[in-house]
Write a protein that binds this DNA or RNA. Structure first.
Length: 725
DNA sequence: AGCACGCCGACT
DNA sequence: GTCGGCGTGCTC
């Protein structure tokens, strides 16, 4: 049998079945591997092998009496390993909770304790009053009928010996919990009435239940996408099927979960990064056994086991967090589409700012696109204005017209939100005398001034240094240059004395619950001015905000990354969507030095749709995705030359594997060559469609992996790379 | 990745 | 004389 093992080796290993047993695809097995004993997953049950019999070893044992992965999930995972050119053993391993990777049994019988008939009748009557613990346990079980030992012991503050004592007396007994009841009941509560567009979207989606269709739910913030999801899910539950909902990490909030729980009395499994291994195992098991009717989770939840799949939803489908940026570099959004297609179920992609890939797909099938134009509560969409930074004086990054607008909104009782995509006080510490600036020792990057000027922190490797007052070169006074959230906060405090202000970024919201608490204060109106990073754009609603300011729109306009303008437009529209939710129309100011930039013009005059049309035309003309396919071969090493040498050799090898249409660009050092002490370089593969690219990689990468230079670097391939850095 | 083997430097 | 540095090879 062929077994996938958690190792970077790009192959599977053949084993003889353990004596007297057989294991089909999807089963986990303990196998000898080198000198180790490891968990593997059977990917093919066949007995034939080309491995010489003296090398072939027998598996030790089959772990469970049922497969860990269904045929469907195993096929999806092996397909993904192939597509993303990642070792299949690592892919399968990453799709399992840690306990399963380490060989824990798939089903864990929960051992519960309960009173025996004798115990129920006699325990309290016969146990002496001084046996406080024993009596407490008996009493607890009279009230609770059954409970795990851990719960009983912690509730009664007793040692395990007390429970054992009662067992010896015949008062309590342990038993394994029966298999979960089949066919869990899903109760759906009525939601608010749908508007016309929402109802049409729900109908379009539910009409395709039972077959593959990809729906784009294109609705501005506040247009009620979640309500459409909830109605579609209700239809799925009614058919006895499960729904899988994928969301970006940051928007998986208690409020969202509460909204699902409020609507459905159906078991819900939540999968996110905050779970510990045991919780993750439990949620995974609930999904696999069908106990959970709705599975809601972040990126990796796309690999949830689902015995009765009915619908997949991807909320905020444009969000970059759906693409894993290290190791197994998959896109959960793309895999959700593949999975839905293989399963023959519909998938819903929801966004106010769909990715250009998704828009291009929707153009080909306009019938699958549902637009939700209306804003709930019929508030007017916000008006966008540009503030020309070349013509207007700025105080610490805030232009005079912006200051005036903020004052006006504050005077009128509105709330103001300022967005700047840069944490810290200032991005550069500079010596005006000699031109020196503070650089990270381990990265090709400036150190950011932090904590109102007490620390220097590298945003790329996290290293931290105390701030210096004098230039190490010429001893002149150094000064912070540029703006970060902290400095904007300081400037605003000075400009608008007395206006309560809050800053929301990764630094100010470190502690758990702090973000929720601050958002609560904002929505109660205790905060008048809000400064923050990307965090502000993700999922939260600010109904009282009437003015939104985008302080630095220009970073995205001239980037080397072809996706930068798309990201910028998405950010602007997402931030703008936070304004004017209530009766007041919102106003959005975008500060820029390039007010005539065509993409900004499109965004302002025609909104995201016009921008996307323009950007798609540009992509088509310059042959970038979605009008081409790319992959990036990356390499890094502590030695500066090694990555480039490896990539040059890799490129030279390409001549041996000619495939029409595949072009190689580079190698070149990465945009930030040195990061955390390692030098990085990359080689770009480009092809008109995926199939020649895939054909090329299948031969070429095997040879690349065998290059002697490959041993001197850490290399990886990134298929459909999202960031060219 | 792990893990072992193997051949050259500074020390219990 | 050993402990251990990381180069090289292998994992069915």
């Amino acid at each position: 049998m062929a077994v996938a093992i958690d190792t970077p080796l790009r192959q599977v290993f053949d084993y003889r079945a353990p004596a007297g047993t057989a294991a089909g695809p999807g089963y986990r097995v303990w196998v000898p591997f080198g000198r180790r004993r490891v968990v593997g997953v059977v990917v093919e049950g066949r007995d034939d092998t080309e491995v010489p019999s003296e090398k072939l070893r027998a598996a030790f044992e089959v772990i469970d009496d049922e497969p860990t992965f269904s045929a469907e999930l195993l096929a999806l995972l092996t397909w993904a390993a192939e597509y993303y050119r990642h070792p299949v053993g690592e892919v399968l391993s990453s799709a399992m909770p840690v306990h399963l990777r380490n060989g824990a049994p798939l089903r864990q019988e929960t051992i519960l304790w309960r009173l025996t008939d004798q115990g129920r009748e006699q325990a309290l009557a016969t146990l002496p009053a001084r046996s406080v613990r024993l009596r407490a346990i008996a009493e607890y079980l009279l009230n609770h009928a059954q409970a795990p030992a851990s719960e009983i012991l912690s509730a009664t503050e007793s040692p395990l010996s007390a429970l054992r004592n009662l067992e010896t007396r015949g008062f309590v007994e342990q038993f394994a919990r029966e298999a979960p009841e089949t066919g869990p009941v899903s109760i759906v509560r009525a939601g608010p009435p749908l508007n016309e567009a929402q109802a049409a979207a729900v109908e379009r989606i539910t009409n395709t239940l039972g077959s593959f269709a990809s729906h784009l739910l294109y609705g501005v913030t506040g247009s009620g996408k979640t309500e459409v999801y909830l109605h579609a899910i209700a239809a799925v539950l009614a058919r006895g099927h499960q729904a899988l909902v994928l969301v970006p990490e940051i928007s998986l909030t208690p409020q969202l979960i509460a909204r699902f729980r409020g609507r459905f009395d159906a078991p819900l499994a939540v999968l996110h990064s905050g779970l510990n291994d045991t919780e993750r195992m439990a949620a995974w098991r609930d999904a696999r056994e069908g106990t959970a009717r709705i599975v809601i989770g972040t990126r990796s939840a796309v690999f949830s086991p689902l015995p009765q799949p009915g619908l997949i939803i991807i909320d905020e489908e444009h969000d970059p967090s759906f693409k894993q940026q290290d190791g197994f570099r998959y896109s959960a959004r793309d895999l959700a589409l593949v999975r839905a297609q293989r399963l023959g179920i519909p998938v819903v992609l929801g966004s106010a700012t769909p990715s250009l890939e998704t828009l291009a797909r929707a153009r080909k099938q306009p019938e699958t696109m549902s637009r939700l134009p209306e804003r709930a509560g019929s508030a007017k969409p916000p008006k966008l204005f540009l503030v020309d930074l070349r013509k207007n004086a700025a105080t610490q990054g805030i232009a005079t017209p912006t200051v005036m607008a903020i004052r006006r909104h504050l005077d009128e009782g509105g709330q103001v939100m300022l967005f700047i995509n840069r944490r810290g006080y200032a991005p550069v510490l500079f010596c005006p005398n000699c031109g020196w600036s503070a650089h990270c020792r381990r990265c090709d990057a400036h150190l950011t001034v932090h904590a109102r000027g007490r620390d220097l922190i590298c945003h790329h490797c996290g290293s931290q240094e105390p701030l210096i007052a004098g230039c190490p070169n010429c001893f002149a006074d150094v000064k912070p240059v540029g703006q970060g959230t902290e400095r904007i906060e300081e400037t605003l405090e000075n400009l608008f004395t007395g206006a309560p202000l809050a800053r929301i970024d990764r630094d100010s919201m470190r502690r758990k619950g702090e973000l929720e608490a601050t958002l609560e204060r904002v929505n109660r109106g205790e905060i008048r001015i809000l400064v923050g990073t990307q965090m502000l754009t993700k999922g939260h609603d600010f109904p009282k905000v009437t003015l939104v300011v985008v302080l630095n729109a220009d970073q995205g306009l001239f980037s080397t990354d072809f996706r930068a303008p798309e990201r910028l437009a998405q950010t602007i529209v997402q931030v703008a969507g936070r304004a004017g939710r209530a009766e007041r129309p919102g106003e959005v100011l975008i500060q820029t030095e390039y007010p005539d930039h065509p993409l900004l013009t499109l965004l302002l005059t025609g909104g995201y749709a016009a921008f996307a049309d323009g950007a798609l035309t540009e992509r088509e003309q310059s042959h970038w995705p979605p009008f081409a396919r790319i992959a990036l071969l990356r390499a890094e090493a502590t030695d500066q030359q090694a990555p480039l040498q490896f990539l040059h050799s890799a490129r030279a090898l390409a001549d041996d594997y000619p495939v029409r249409g595949v072009r190689l660009l580079g190698p070149a050092p990465s945009p930030m060559e040195r990061r955390a002490g390692r030098f990085r370089a990359q080689l770009l593969l480009h092809a008109p469609t995926h199939s020649p690219l895939q054909r090329f990689m299948s031969g070429w990468l095997t040879a690349v992996a065998m290059l002697p230079e490959a041993r001197k670097v850490r290399w990886s391939i990134d298929v459909d790379a999202a960031e060219l850095s």
